[in-house]
Simulated scan of single mutants.
Amino acid sequence: MSFSRSTFGLPIRRGDVDDGALVATSGVRWGWKDEVRRVPGVLLCSAPLTGHVAPMIAIGRQLRLDGWTVVVLTGSRFRRRIEEAGLAHVPLPASCDFDDRDLDRVFPGRHRMPGVLRSRFDLEHLFAAKIADQYRALSALVDETDVDVVLAENLFLGVLPLLRRPAGGRESVRSVRRR
């Protein structure tokens, strides 16, 4: 998967500035070449479930108001809501993107599971089984863009392998949880 920094309105790198050019790419970095200013960028990551995405959109909206560039990595069905909030959207790969409005159809056998077993099924199939594909998408996005902070809701497990990168060479990684 290949991403372009400017595709998502993310910060361009200093080397991307042409001699004497005024930088105005999505308003992220601006000024003359020798005085380029940078707006911090945050990547919000969420499993493609309404109850997980909605709080991340609210957080992203506030971060944007506070001057951050915000990109949300989540399911494709949330694109309109994310863009209406003034945030950039990057869809998860099809292998880990699903429609949460009919989980029993998307995950056969789920409807037969009672209570605790359904929770275990969900943890395994909706979250744990998606780690590798979520991580590949997250890693590609982080490697191709100027992200300062990765903020993931607590069941976007694709962020876990990112934590294995050396702390000095990776973005700050944080988790969102309820108190």
Rank of each mutant, 00 (worst) to 15 (best):
R77D: 01
P48V: 13
P108E: 07
V71Q: 06
H111Y: 01
L117M: 14
F98D: 06
P93A: 01
R64L: 00
K130A: 04
F78I: 10
Q134Y: 13
H52S: 09
R80F: 10
R77V: 08
S46H: 13
L92I: 07
I59R: 11
I59Q: 13
L65Y: 07
R61L: 07
G75V: 12
V90A: 14
D100N: 00
D66V: 03
V53Y: 12
P114F: 00
D97C: 11
G51P: 00
D104S: 08
V72P: 07
S95D: 00
A58S: 12
T69F: 05
R120I: 15
L65W: 11
F127D: 02
Q134W: 14
R81G: 09
S46N: 06
L73I: 08
M113F: 06
L117K: 00
R101K: 08
S119A: 12
A54H: 05
F98M: 08
G86A: 06
A54C: 05
P93H: 03
L63A: 09
V53P: 05
D97L: 11
M113K: 15
D66Y: 03
G67Y: 10
P114G: 09
G75C: 09
E124D: 06
H89P: 01
G60Q: 05
D100C: 12
I57K: 07
D133S: 15
K130Q: 15
T50P: 01
A54W: 06
A129H: 14
L63F: 00
C96H: 09
W68C: 09
D102S: 12
L117T: 05
D66L: 14
R110P: 10
A132N: 15
A129V: 12
G115L: 12
A94L: 13
P55Q: 06
G75H: 06
L117Q: 13
R101A: 08
C45D: 10
G51S: 04
L49K: 11
P48I: 14
Q134A: 04
A128W: 12
R120Q: 07
D102C: 01
F121P: 00
P108G: 03
V90P: 05
T74P: 08
P114Y: 10
G86V: 03
R105C: 03
V106W: 10
L87A: 08
M56K: 08
G86Q: 09
L117I: 01
R64E: 05
G86H: 02
P114V: 11
G115D: 09
V72M: 15
W68N: 03
R101G: 09
F98E: 04
A94F: 07
A88D: 04
A129E: 14
D97N: 15
L123R: 14
F121L: 08
H111R: 05
K130C: 08
K130P: 06
P114D: 14
A47L: 12
P93V: 08
S46K: 05
A132I: 13
Q134T: 00
T69V: 02
F121G: 04
S76E: 13
A129L: 11
Q134G: 00
C45E: 04
H111A: 13
L92C: 09
F121S: 06
L92W: 06
G60K: 03
A128V: 13
L123C: 07
A58M: 02
F98G: 01
R112S: 04
R80P: 02
C96Y: 04
R80Q: 15
R112H: 08
T50D: 12
